[in-house]
Amino acid sequence: MKDMIPVDRKMSTMQDSKISARGVQVYYGETHAIKDVSVEIADNTVTAFIGPSGCGKSTFLRCINRMNDTIDTARVMGDILIDGEDIYDPRVDPVQLRAKVGMVFQKPNPFPKSIYDNVAYGPKIHGLARNKADLDEIVEKSLRKAALWEEAKDRLDKPGTGLSGGQQQRLCIARAIATAPEVLLMDEPCSALDPIATAQVEELIDELRQSYSVVIVTHSMQQAARVSQKTAFFHLGNLVEYDDTDKIFTNPQDPRTESYISGRIG
């Protein structure tokens, strides 16, 4: 664990929990994918979900912005509250929810449009800009936040698909933050990237913590240790352990967590 970067883990900036899940169960058809998970996720924090493949961490992540709605067979039970509002309330429009809870996917998926249009897409559909100048400003701000501005400012009208893998992923992050979300969900955002691009994105995630509650699913324990303040360990659909990241990695309470950390399962 030498590569653990000591980051600011003081919880003084933490407020009340941003997301609280209570007794969440997910079924895919007959498969019981998530079993009674309850968790409180704080604002301005990076929370990592770790665990072996198929443990349910991505599924749980997709519950937080109701992306599971797009899968016909998925059923979600239990409560997930964001800012105290149940997002599975029938009155909640998932579209509105997703504007508030942005998501970055495993594989960079820029739209086959220009870089500018990629970033401007969200603000346009949500009506966040009053005029072109507003929109330009949002695009620039988002690209700057995603640390892509310097690389992209001269080629805003070029297709986003022409960027390198790491740049594409940062473009997707810029796209997600352009809608001014409060929560940013990241589903293994670095799994398709090379180490240099990964380092850039990780650095970015740490900065994003200032403004958002970031939830990241990752395969790599090192990554979880590097970027997150809180870590949740999932195993076979159960939330096994949830605690401060350094505690999970140095002094896990559950034997399963320990086996996973030390590489015996996974």
């Binding site: 919880m11 933490m14 009340d16 929990s17 609280s20 309850s38 968790v39 409180e40 704080a42 964001i82 800012d83 105290g84 509002e85 997002i87 309330d89 009155r91 909640v92 429009d93 509105q96 929810l97 504007a99 508030k100 001014a180 409060e182 949830y242 605690d243 401060d244």
Partner: peptide, 26 residues
């Protein structure tokens, strides 16, 4: 479940840019 903040008010209108999820914006 260490830092459970269960004492937060259930119905407090969220003071955010997005407004409440429960009401539909125009």
């Amino acid at each position: 479940m260490t830092d459970a903040a269960t004492d937060m008010p259930e119905k407090a209108p969220a003071q955010t840019a997005h407004g409440s999820l429960l009401s539909e914006s125009p």
